[in-house]
Amino acid sequence: MNADAFWSNGARDPGLFRFTVKCDRAMNAKIEKAARAAGISASSFVQNFFEKILDQPAVMASAEEIAETRREIETARSCGITVSMLRIHRAMKDGASERGTFADGVGVIAEATGLPPSSIRVMMSKLVTAGLIRRLKSAARGTTGIYHVFSIGDDR
């Protein structure tokens, strides 16, 4: 995570750092709604959360979990995609037929990955661009899209 010194009233304070977090529109809307309900700004709401995250006891990852995460990072990097995109690809691959056809909705992927549906749709488009999935039929009103999911390393 990048930490840059925070500028306050034009003077640099080396004791403060600014962190940037990214979220999609749906998450931003949830944060803003919760902040309004609490009667504070969204920035203050996130700051309050940030100040509390280290109050929770740290959960140490096992050596196996760390190794799996490293493998995911390396695999994603080798494909030119993010780890979240790799997880979406894997969820689609796991849900695909023997012929590689995935016909479930975004909700199935969201449940498998824990990612918000709006992010999944964007990342699926990027997976199409990366050549890891191919759209066979676009989603239409009341129906799900159909995709062919390539195995990583397949000729496309």
Rank of each mutant, 00 (worst) to 15 (best):
Phe150Leu: 06
Ser41His: 12
Met124Asp: 05
Ala140Arg: 15
Asp4Phe: 14
Glu74Lys: 14
Arg71Phe: 12
Ala139Glu: 15
Phe17Met: 11
Lys22Val: 13
Ala26Pro: 02
Thr82Met: 00
Met85Phe: 06
Ala34Met: 00
Lys137Asn: 08
Ala130Leu: 11
Lys30Glu: 12
Leu136Trp: 01
Asn28Trp: 15
Thr101Leu: 09
Val21Cys: 01
Ala139Ile: 13
Glu65Gln: 12
Ile152Ala: 02
Val59Asn: 03
Leu127Pro: 02
Glu68Met: 10
Gly39Ile: 03
Ala63Val: 11
Arg77Lys: 15
Asn9His: 15
Gly153Ala: 12
Met1Lys: 09
Ile152Cys: 04
Ser84Glu: 08
Gly107Ala: 11
Ala76Tyr: 03
Ser43Tyr: 13
Ser151Val: 01
Asn9Thr: 09
Ile146Met: 10
Asp24Pro: 04
Thr75Phe: 01
Pro116Lys: 01
Glu65Phe: 04
Asn9Met: 11
Glu111Val: 06
Ala110Cys: 05
Phe17Ser: 11
Gly39Pro: 01
Ile81Pro: 07
Arg156Tyr: 12
Glu74Asn: 13
Glu74Arg: 15
Ser84Tyr: 08
Lys33Ile: 00
Leu115Lys: 05
Ser44Asp: 14
Glu74Ile: 10
Ala61Val: 11
Met27Phe: 11
Ala139Pro: 06
Ala38Cys: 07
Val59Phe: 00
Ala76Thr: 07
Gly100Phe: 02
Ala139Cys: 12
Ala35Met: 01
Thr143Gly: 01
Pro57Cys: 01
Gly153Lys: 09
Pro14Ser: 03
Phe45Ser: 01
His89Asp: 02
Asp104Thr: 08
Gln56Ser: 03
Pro117Ser: 10
Leu132Gly: 01
Pro116Phe: 07
Phe49Glu: 05
Ala67Phe: 09
Phe6Leu: 14
Gly131Tyr: 01
Ala139Phe: 09
Ala42Gly: 10
Met123Leu: 15
Asp24Asn: 08
Ile73Glu: 14
Lys30Asp: 11
Phe19Lys: 08
Ala34Arg: 10
Ala11Met: 11
Asp104Met: 14
Leu132Gln: 00
Gly153Asn: 13
His89Ala: 03
Ile81Gly: 05
Thr20Leu: 04
Arg87Trp: 06
Ser62Arg: 07
Ala110Glu: 06
Asp55Thr: 14
Asn9Asp: 15
Gln56Lys: 04
Gly105Ile: 10
Ala140Gln: 15
Met27Gln: 14
Ser8Trp: 14
Glu72Asn: 10
Ala110Val: 05
Gly142Lys: 11
Gln47Asp: 15
Ala5Asp: 10
Lys93Leu: 15
Met1Gln: 10
Ile81Val: 05
Val149Ala: 00
Arg12His: 06
Glu65Lys: 02
Ile81Arg: 01
Met85Asn: 04
Asp4Glu: 15
Ile109Asp: 00
Asp154His: 04
Ile120Val: 09
Phe102Ala: 03
Arg36Phe: 05
Phe45Arg: 03
Glu98Gln: 08
Trp7Phe: 09
Val106Arg: 12
Asp94Pro: 00
Val46Asn: 07
Asp55Lys: 01
Asp13Glu: 10
Arg25Cys: 02
Arg141Lys: 12
Ser125Met: 06
Leu16His: 09
Lys33Glu: 13
Ala3Pro: 01
Glu111Ala: 12
Val46Lys: 06
Ala61Gly: 10
Met85Val: 03
Arg25Lys: 08
